[in-house]
């Protein structure tokens, strides 16, 4: 599903070039749940942004669902965002002026889903996430865990094939974090959504099937969780 070949990402300063990602290669198959780990500034989020087509690599090739993402037009990228990719953020990034229901509905509007169908899909998801009573509340009226639930609901409402989560539990306390991880695992196992998460948390990383460690923009290790557990 995802194939990164020799990806470079760098910033040119006056006298030197700083590499964020260096000769990075990666293959992720459909249905995988991958955790990316590494210290701050290692390039995790940049990698996620490149995979999510929010940022572009300075060099290298990126194929998403066999399409050369590094050559895609902005219009085509928007198509992919609408149909195949969902995003979950550490800071939730809900739109403050929208209610819970409206936040969840937003991707469907841009996907061109008709109003009636949208309402039904939102209602269905609210029911599934036990948030029906909160549908008319604004983000500021919700707890962090509830906000992240809304963020996940918004990310999956358009039935994406890939879910990119940038430290989804980073702003939550551990119990809320576990709940969110369980939910992501469930989405991966039951609905077959490919999930790539960036995390600092070893425990939460193990909710995935594979852990990739990055340091200084380079891949240090790429092992299945089962193998890692065996090593421990």
């Amino acid at each position: 599903m995802i194939q990164l070949n020799d990806i470079f990402k760098y910033y040119d300063n006056k006298f030197q070039r700083s590499y964020v990602l260096k000769d990075f290669c990666l293959n992720i198959n459909e249905g995988e749940f991958v955790s990316i780990m590494g210290p701050s500034g290692a390039g995790k989020s940049t990698l996620l942004n490149i995979i999510g087509m929010l940022d572009v690599a300075d060099d290298g090739e990126y194929f998403f669902m066999d399409q050369p993402a590094h050559k895609l037009s902005d219009k085509k990228k928007v198509e992919f965002h609408r149909n195949y990719v969902g995003f979950i953020f550490q800071a939730f990034h809900l739109i403050d002026e929208m209610t819970v229901a409206e936040n969840i509905e937003t991707p469907l509007i841009y996907k061109g889903v008709k109003s009636k169908e949208r309402k039904a899909m939102v209602a269905d998801l609210l029911d599934r996430f036990n948030m029906v009573a909160k549908k008319d509340l604004f983000p500021a009226q919700l707890s962090g865990g509830q906000q992240q639930l809304v963020g996940i609901a918004r990310a999956i409402i358009s039935k994406p094939k890939l879910l990119l989560a940038d430290e989804p539990t980073g702003n939550l306390h551990s119990d809320q974090g576990k709940e969110i991880m369980k939910l992501l695992k469930k989405l991966n196992e039951e609905e077959g959504i490919t999930i790539i998460q960036v995390t600092h948390n070893e425990e939460f990383a193990q909710y995935g099937k594979r852990i990739i460690r990055i340091e200084d923009g380079m891949k240090k290790s790429d092992l299945p969780v089962a193998t890692l557990l065996e090593q421990v």
């Binding site: 999510g52 929010l54 902005d74 219009k75 928007v78 965002h81 609408r82 149909n83 990719v85 995003f87 800071a91 990034h93 809900l94 739109i95 403050d96 937003t106 991707p107 841009y110 996907k111 918004r154 358009s158």
Partner: peptide
């Protein structure tokens, strides 16, 4: 600025 990015991740185009 963040909401601009959120809209984009939700599939909004520049025109939207």
């Amino acid at each position: 600025a963040k909401s601009s990015a959120v809209y984009k991740t939700c599939g909004a185009t520049a025109n939207d």
